[in-house]
């Protein structure tokens, strides 16, 4: 099956700067794919090439098998792009703004009106119909731009920093909207600096730094590749020294270190083996009351993979 969005060997050079260097990944229909990297890593350039706004120096991007180089019009019909710095016309109401883009996307007659109705309902913009776009809050502006992006029912959506500057409530609402869109079968490529947000909704991520992809794939797989061992925190009722000594004797246990009330160690085994270790600790009478595998999240992945290089 053809991927909804497929980036192959994408390279974009500005003078001496290789803003994007041989980037490849793909996003399937119904998938939410996070695109993370420090500022200036090449995220926006990649997204702009995907949106046919910039030409690659080499490589290609295909949206539902249409190339941005050969069929930009077909690509635009299938793509919804929400740029990081999007514009809202001055002296324009919410309805006029959406109506204009609906016309621009060649929606006619009753279909245009029904689409406007659906999109405004989906994004909860109905009550703000006659408000000037300039008077909207940041969150509402983001909704407006998302509504505009949805007008032509694109199969692929590219959202560049949609959560930037939003308050926690607006972020949660946006996350729900994105999730609902993925459930509708849309392929979504989303970039954000708020990694906790992304990790909750993304099926996969691509980490980019200095124009190059550092890692890509499902979040848990990346985590697994990055850290083959898990970090475990253990607290027992028995004497800490005894626990420490006993733990060091177990196979696959490394780097035992004492913390305030417990012990942290690295364990080179999978989850069943973790369970086995816990059973052994109980059997040996160490009386564990807390045994927790510290989760490696997207933030750890990001920090581990990137060095904050600026090009």
């Amino acid at each position: 099956m053809v991927a909804a969005l497929e980036i192959t060997g994408l390279t974009k050079v500005f003078g001496d700067l290789r803003a994007v260097d041989d980037v490849s990944f793909s996003v399937d229909a119904g998938q939410i794919y996070g695109f993370i990297g420090p500022n200036g890593a090449g995220k926006t350039t990649t997204m702009r090439v995907c949106a046919t706004l910039q030409l690659p120096d080499s490589g290609d991007v295909r949206i539902e098998d249409y190339s941005v180089l050969d069929d930009p019009r077909k690509v635009r019909e299938r793509l919804g792009f929400m740029p990081d710095a999007y514009g809202a016309y001055s002296s324009t109401t919410v309805f006029d703004y959406l109506d204009f883009f609906a016309r621009a996307y060649k929606l006619k007659g009753k279909r245009r009106y029904s689409t406007l109705r659906e999109v405004m309902e989906f994004t909860s913009l109905g009550p703000l119909r006659d408000k000037l776009t300039s008077s909207l809050s940041k969150g509402m502006k983001q909704r407006l731009c998302l509504a505009k992006t949805l007008l032509h029912d694109p199969a692929v959506m590219i959202l560049d920093e949609p959560a930037a500057g939003l308050d926690p409530r607006a972020r949660v609402e946006l996350r729900e909207l994105v999730r609902a869109l993925a459930e509708m079968g849309k392929a979504i490529l989303i970039s954000s600096h708020i990694l906790t947000e992304l990790s909750e909704i993304c099926d996969g991520v691509a980490v980019i730094e200095a124009g190059r992809i550092q890692a890509r794939g499902p979040v848990n797989e990346i985590v697994k590749n990055l850290r083959p061992h898990s970090e475990i925190y253990l607290r027992c009722l028995e004497n800490l020294q005894a626990v420490e000594r006993r733990l060091s004797e177990f196979p696959r246990v490394r780097g035992v270190r004492r913390e305030a009330e417990g012990i942290t160690f690295d364990f080179e085994g999978d989850q069943p083996e973790q369970a086995e270790l816990l059973a052994n600790l109980v059997q040996e009478g160490l009386r564990p009351i807390e045994f927790a595998s510290k989760a490696t999240d997207l933030e750890d992945v990001f920090l581990k993979l990137t060095e904050g290089k600026v090009q």
Partner: peptide, 10 residues
């Protein structure tokens, strides 16, 4: 900043 939105429309 509306030029990009215009260009990617139909």
């Amino acid at each position: 900043n509306t030029h990009d939105l215009l260009v990617i429309s139909n």
